[in-house]
Design a protein around this nucleic acid. Structure first.
Lengths: 207, 207
DNA sequence: TGTTTAATTAATCAATTGATTAAATCATTC
DNA sequence: GAATGATTTAATCAATTGATTAATTAAACA
């Protein structure tokens, strides 16, 4: 049994699964050890504390999302509207494939918002990307293609419409007695509908 | 000290404060007792368990929100657009006044989505309201005033755009190094902007 | 006033949990 | 193959926590 596969990796995989499913507080080191089929002391041997391990898993998941949006926003070949469509499509697809992620991340955003905020501020090039996108919006506004809107407001709209429905899906399905498969169909449609909605709101059609 | 004010009420108020601030798992009965300035056994004396007390506070908060939207949706004097504007205005105002509420409720929605869903399904007249609103949408569509859209999709858009920004406010302010007061200004503008956005997307202007 | 009921307190229980430790086992190197 | 260091295990610690209990005090009532 010993070393037949990387113990450290097994722990990370187990932690990823359990943390993402139950969140920080409701996950125990014993849960993780059991999932990885190892002694609980091993988890402390490889990762000093529960917090360490949690932040590893959390940052990993969070980076995935932030990198996605940065890649799209910094792609010079896309105009504003293409960027909006790309973000919406990528995010909704991503959350459909990994339905546990929105809950997991929002759980931590709620539990400890400043920590994630601070991390984004220093670790990532996010602030620059944000400013660049802001400039692009300003230019399009001057060209008369879009109405005036702040980058923050626009991004808030996009992210809200992509993330929130994914978070409340289980509750909504319970509340209106709707099959989750039916809800998934609605979400699938939203890959284009949400982008249409946002573009329609800011685009100025040339006569 | 004894009975100089209603002990039961003092417990509820303390529980409301602590639960809404720290969520279920991170709140202890000792926290609540301390906040209410009473012996911890009293909390068990009046409310059998931690869960009981939590659900009391949770349902109270959740009812507030659901009643708000039901009141607006069942107001026959409002057309679709007025309803949209009313919901957006009411919710954003409400979350601005009680900034802890979105986090608290979403925390539970994430922790235990089925429970809230089931409760909405049976306790509330929500399903009927939902169907009535659905009919109203259908009629407006047949009259040619709006594009075709499902009630679920429309409501999801409205709620997403109202709730999500309130949830991520602390994180966003940290991430882009922005004063919370500045963010509040942006939120204030959204009271009309969000409704404009949604109406613009579904309204069919007569020529 | 005396008695019964309700409210309150301090102390404690039992279970859970993150963390540690000391001993055991395996792998590597000389 | 002995020695050294890394890995693994079982046992345990100390702290926390929801819950309970038995004793005490206040209130209500006769």
């Amino acid at each position: 049994m010993r070393q037949d596969r990387n113990t450290e990796q097994a722990i990370i995989e187990a932690a990823r699964k359990i943390f993402q499913e139950k969140g920080f507080k409701e996950t125990t080191m014993r849960d993780i050890a059991a999932e990885a089929n190892i002694n609980m002391a091993m988890v402390h041997y490889y990762f000093r504390s529960k917090e360490n391990l949690f932040f590893l898993v959390l940052n990993e998941a969070f980076s995935l999302l932030v990198e996605k949006i940065i890649t799209i926003l910094t792609n010079d070949e896309l105009d504003i509207f293409e960027k909006i469509r790309a973000i919406v499509r990528e995010y909704i697809t991503f959350f459909t494939e990994k339905p546990y992620l929105p809950q997991f991340l929002m759980g931590e955003v709620i539990r400890n918002p400043e920590r994630i905020g601070k991390q984004m501020l220093k670790n990532m090039s996010f602030l620059n990307v944000f400013r660049t996108f802001s400039d692009q919006l300003e230019k399009e506004y001057e060209k008369g293609t879009i109405q005036h809107i702040s980058a923050l407001s626009l991004l808030l709209n996009i992210i809200s419409l992509c993330v929130f429905p994914a978070i409340v899906k289980p509750m909504v399905c319970g509340a209106i007695n709707c099959d989750t498969a039916l809800f998934d169909l609605l979400i699938e449609d939203r890959k284009t509908e949400v982008a249409d909605l946002i573009i329609k709101a800011i685009q100025i059609k040339k006569i």
